Simulated scan of single mutants.
Amino acid sequence: MKSSQSLCRVLLATVTSVMVISGAHAADALKMELTANKMVKTKEGKVSYLPVRTAPAGSVIQYKATYTNTTNQNINDLAVTLPIPANMTFTGDAYPTSAQASTDGKNYADMPLMRKVNGKLVKVPLSEYKALRWNIKWLPANKSADVSLNTVVD
Protein backbone atom coordinates (compact mmCIF):
# COMPACT_ATOMS: atom_id res chain seq x y z
CA MET A 1 0.00 0.00 0.00
CA LYS A 2 1.13 3.54 -0.76
CA SER A 3 0.62 6.55 1.44
CA SER A 4 -1.46 9.17 -0.35
CA GLN A 5 0.31 11.91 1.59
CA SER A 6 3.65 10.74 0.21
CA LEU A 7 2.20 10.49 -3.30
CA CYS A 8 0.66 13.92 -2.93
CA ARG A 9 3.92 15.50 -1.68
CA VAL A 10 5.96 14.08 -4.57
CA LEU A 11 3.37 15.21 -7.08
CA LEU A 12 3.06 18.64 -5.46
CA ALA A 13 6.82 19.25 -5.66
CA THR A 14 6.85 18.23 -9.31
CA VAL A 15 3.78 20.29 -10.20
CA THR A 16 5.19 23.38 -8.56
CA SER A 17 8.48 23.03 -10.43
CA VAL A 18 6.93 22.61 -13.89
CA MET A 19 4.27 25.32 -13.72
CA VAL A 20 4.72 27.98 -16.43
CA ILE A 21 3.20 31.43 -16.01
CA SER A 22 3.28 34.43 -18.34
CA GLY A 23 4.16 37.73 -16.72
CA ALA A 24 6.78 38.53 -14.11
CA HIS A 25 4.29 39.21 -11.29
CA ALA A 26 2.23 36.08 -11.90
CA ALA A 27 4.49 33.64 -10.01
CA ASP A 28 3.72 35.42 -6.73
CA ALA A 29 0.07 35.87 -7.67
CA LEU A 30 -0.85 32.21 -8.10
CA LYS A 31 -1.66 29.83 -5.26
CA MET A 32 -1.97 26.09 -5.98
CA GLU A 33 -3.65 23.48 -3.79
CA LEU A 34 -3.31 19.79 -4.66
CA THR A 35 -5.58 17.04 -3.33
CA ALA A 36 -5.63 13.28 -3.82
CA ASN A 37 -8.97 11.50 -3.50
CA LYS A 38 -10.06 7.91 -3.96
CA MET A 39 -12.95 7.23 -6.34
CA VAL A 40 -15.78 5.33 -4.65
CA LYS A 41 -18.99 4.04 -6.26
CA THR A 42 -22.15 4.22 -4.17
CA LYS A 43 -24.84 1.53 -4.04
CA GLU A 44 -26.82 3.64 -6.50
CA GLY A 45 -23.92 3.54 -8.96
CA LYS A 46 -22.96 7.18 -8.46
CA VAL A 47 -19.29 8.16 -8.21
CA SER A 48 -17.89 10.21 -5.35
CA TYR A 49 -14.37 11.13 -4.34
CA LEU A 50 -13.20 10.73 -0.75
CA PRO A 51 -9.93 11.80 0.89
CA VAL A 52 -7.48 8.92 0.66
CA ARG A 53 -5.19 7.67 3.42
CA THR A 54 -3.84 4.57 1.67
CA ALA A 55 -4.03 3.50 -1.92
CA PRO A 56 -3.92 -0.27 -2.49
CA ALA A 57 -3.26 -1.61 -5.99
CA GLY A 58 -6.24 -1.14 -8.28
CA SER A 59 -7.55 1.97 -6.51
CA VAL A 60 -8.58 4.90 -8.68
CA ILE A 61 -7.03 8.11 -7.35
CA GLN A 62 -7.97 11.55 -8.61
CA TYR A 63 -5.35 14.29 -8.40
CA LYS A 64 -7.00 17.70 -8.42
CA ALA A 65 -5.10 20.98 -8.54
CA THR A 66 -6.88 24.26 -7.78
CA TYR A 67 -5.09 27.38 -9.02
CA THR A 68 -6.17 30.65 -7.39
CA ASN A 69 -5.27 34.09 -8.70
CA THR A 70 -4.62 36.00 -5.48
CA THR A 71 -4.30 39.43 -7.10
CA ASN A 72 -6.61 42.10 -8.48
CA GLN A 73 -5.22 41.53 -12.00
CA ASN A 74 -6.12 38.85 -14.52
CA ILE A 75 -3.54 36.21 -15.45
CA ASN A 76 -3.39 35.34 -19.15
CA ASP A 77 -1.98 32.28 -20.92
CA LEU A 78 -1.34 30.05 -17.92
CA ALA A 79 0.01 26.56 -18.66
CA VAL A 80 -0.22 24.04 -15.82
CA THR A 81 1.14 20.52 -15.80
CA LEU A 82 0.36 17.51 -13.61
CA PRO A 83 2.81 14.60 -13.82
CA ILE A 84 1.52 11.06 -13.50
CA PRO A 85 3.39 9.34 -10.64
CA ALA A 86 5.61 6.40 -11.58
CA ASN A 87 3.51 3.88 -9.63
CA MET A 88 0.25 5.03 -11.27
CA THR A 89 -1.39 4.58 -14.68
CA PHE A 90 -3.53 7.33 -16.23
CA THR A 91 -7.13 6.15 -16.78
CA GLY A 92 -7.87 8.52 -19.68
CA ASP A 93 -10.13 10.69 -17.51
CA ALA A 94 -9.10 14.34 -17.22
CA TYR A 95 -10.88 17.60 -16.47
CA PRO A 96 -11.11 19.79 -18.38
CA THR A 97 -11.04 17.41 -21.31
CA SER A 98 -8.90 19.88 -23.27
CA ALA A 99 -5.76 18.49 -21.59
CA GLN A 100 -2.81 17.52 -23.71
CA ALA A 101 -0.66 14.50 -22.85
CA SER A 102 3.01 13.61 -22.97
CA THR A 103 5.02 10.40 -22.87
CA ASP A 104 8.25 12.22 -21.98
CA GLY A 105 7.15 15.27 -19.96
CA LYS A 106 8.47 17.62 -22.68
CA ASN A 107 6.42 17.15 -25.85
CA TYR A 108 2.64 17.49 -25.58
CA ALA A 109 -0.16 16.68 -28.02
CA ASP A 110 -3.94 16.31 -28.02
CA MET A 111 -5.35 13.05 -26.66
CA PRO A 112 -5.46 10.30 -27.56
CA LEU A 113 -1.74 10.24 -28.33
CA MET A 114 -0.96 8.42 -31.58
CA ARG A 115 2.17 6.85 -33.12
CA LYS A 116 3.06 4.87 -36.21
CA VAL A 117 3.57 1.13 -35.85
CA ASN A 118 4.33 -0.83 -39.03
CA GLY A 119 3.10 2.11 -41.11
CA LYS A 120 -0.24 2.37 -39.29
CA LEU A 121 -1.35 5.00 -36.74
CA VAL A 122 -2.19 3.40 -33.39
CA LYS A 123 -3.10 4.81 -29.99
CA VAL A 124 -0.31 5.09 -27.44
CA PRO A 125 -1.19 2.96 -24.39
CA LEU A 126 -2.34 5.04 -21.40
CA SER A 127 0.35 3.32 -19.33
CA GLU A 128 2.94 5.32 -21.31
CA TYR A 129 1.43 8.73 -20.48
CA LYS A 130 3.78 10.61 -18.11
CA ALA A 131 2.09 14.03 -17.70
CA LEU A 132 -0.92 16.15 -18.68
CA ARG A 133 -0.93 19.86 -19.45
CA TRP A 134 -3.78 22.36 -19.57
CA ASN A 135 -3.68 25.84 -21.10
CA ILE A 136 -5.78 28.27 -19.10
CA LYS A 137 -6.26 31.25 -21.39
CA TRP A 138 -7.60 33.57 -18.72
CA LEU A 139 -7.76 33.36 -14.92
CA PRO A 140 -9.69 36.36 -13.60
CA ALA A 141 -8.54 38.33 -10.58
CA ASN A 142 -9.35 36.60 -7.25
CA LYS A 143 -10.84 33.54 -9.03
CA SER A 144 -9.84 29.86 -9.19
CA ALA A 145 -9.54 27.17 -11.86
CA ASP A 146 -9.45 23.40 -11.30
CA VAL A 147 -7.71 20.68 -13.29
CA SER A 148 -7.72 16.98 -12.48
CA LEU A 149 -6.69 13.58 -13.73
CA ASN A 150 -7.56 10.06 -12.63
CA THR A 151 -5.00 7.31 -12.12
CA VAL A 152 -4.98 3.68 -11.05
CA VAL A 153 -2.46 2.45 -8.48
CA ASP A 154 -0.25 -0.19 -10.11
Rank of each mutant, 00 (worst) to 15 (best):
V18T: 15
Q100H: 10
C8K: 13
P140W: 06
V60N: 04
V60D: 01
S59G: 07
T89H: 05
E44C: 05
K143C: 07
A36T: 11
L12W: 15
P96C: 07
L139A: 01
P96D: 03
E33L: 14
A57G: 05
G105M: 11
Y49G: 02
A99Q: 07
Q62W: 05
I61L: 15
P112V: 08
Q5H: 03
A13L: 13
L132D: 09
L132Q: 15
R115F: 03
Y95W: 03
A29D: 14
V60C: 12
A141P: 04
V153C: 04
V10F: 10
V122H: 01
M1I: 08
T89M: 12
S6M: 08
G45V: 09
G92K: 11
P112N: 11
M19Q: 14
A101H: 01
A94D: 04
Q100G: 05
S98H: 00
K41G: 00
Y108M: 07
L113K: 09
K46T: 14
A141S: 12
D77W: 08
K130C: 12
V60E: 10
H25I: 04
V124N: 04
A94I: 03
K143W: 07
N150S: 09
T16N: 08
Q100P: 04
M1Y: 07
L12F: 15
Y95G: 00
